[in-house]
Write a protein that binds this DNA or RNA. Sequence first.
DNA 1: ACGCAAACTTGCGTGCACGCACTTTTACTG
DNA 2: CAGTAAAAGTGCGTGCACGCAAGTTTGCGT
Lengths: 218, 218
Amino acid sequence: MTTPPPGLRERKKQATREALREAALRLAVERGPDQVRVEDIAEAAGVSPRTYNNYFASREQAIVAAVTSGREARIATAVAARPAGVRLADAVTEAVVEQYTNTGEHEQQALLLITTRTALRDAFLDTTADIEPPLTAVIAERLGDTGAHTARVLAASAAAAVRIALEGWLRPAGNPEAAESFGAGGLVVPSGSLPDRLRAALAPLAPAFDAAERRTQL
Amino acid sequence: MTTPPPGLRERKKQATREALREAALRLAVERGPDQVRVEDIAEAAGVSPRTYNNYFASREQAIVAAVTSGREARIATAVAARPAGVRLADAVTEAVVEQYTNTGEHEQQALLLITTRTALRDAFLDTTADIEPPLTAVIAERLGDTGAHTARVLAASAAAAVRIALEGWLRPAGNPEAAESFGAGGLVVPSGSLPDRLRAALAPLAPAFDAAERRTQL
DNA sequence: ACGCAAACTTGCGTGCACGCACTTTTACTG
DNA sequence: CAGTAAAAGTGCGTGCACGCAAGTTTGCGT
């Protein structure tokens, strides 16, 4: 495709980005997330605070990015890698599960941190939106040009489902927020590991994926 | 259900909320959206700036709320109002179309304003998330307790679809952003009125709604 | 009618996001 | 090997979001 050579400019940019991510995470772990100002992160990475905001739009994004960096691209690649024979719904589901189960030591620690602050939790959940564009691209590829529109909707729905799964997963056990939205029947199933939750959240969308896929094969 | 009498406290709160909304919209129309500070809105509504932020989390929300206020509730009610015989997918789609076609004079003017600033546009698009909880509730009601989980995913997906429809709809014609995400085949259909776009965006989800609905009828 | 507890408002202080104008660095061309 | 244009970094200034710790109002029980 389009990878001439990456050029010094781009490499420096990525280096700065990574420096900011790592500095943010390290400082947050060391002192606790509330004792880290943007100024500190910028200084630790050797750039000005203003430059920090050229890379990340909020204080939380850098910390969260240390966990989620590149996940969107990996999910898209994983979907594209599945043989064309398998159901699109399965390809997407498994790609998602696979990438979110990527539990490196670094990430486990960071996730623990993230659960402790709602601002971080929210920033983390917002990253699910990042998977939408690449997902749209790979889905569109399978559906053909007529399904470009559909691809967009399916990708957004999948992203929404993932968000829901994550939301439930990293909900701290302690809060009595579960019985909030329903008047009477409080028989909800609170359980499940992350892969289970992801699969369960994506399952209801499978018929939509199937229908879209079927439409292209006619 | 639960409407004892609303009480003075609550009525005052709503009054303040509405005062802020109206003040925000009026000032934005009068002077242009960039010439309105939170301080101005608060003053015009007779509260402190700090109180403004107890009601709205951003400067844009008040302006946008002047257009979207109560839409979530109306959509939910509209869905619940459809006879139990019609397809759930249709009920949701028509309820959404109905409520977004609510084109009062006030709103038309405000929408025009909103398109002129991306910050406003984004805030407006973010309000689609508000329909998710009420939609979850009415869908869950139709699906029964076993489908609570599914209801959540379907509601979120519908909200995402609506967002996509709106995004495309109020995209200013002038920007060459359309050919961005696709490498080669730039044959996209740019067209459509808002109801068309909404229906088109929700259509791919219909199979998922059908499947969920079918599952409860077994 | 009284008084208390909970809810709402407000002022203050802090850190943050970002537009703008300017300097420094990188890339490309003759 | 310039010279130049584009891009990234930076300092400054402004308005904003929000925690906190008062003050003020509303609701309710007795």
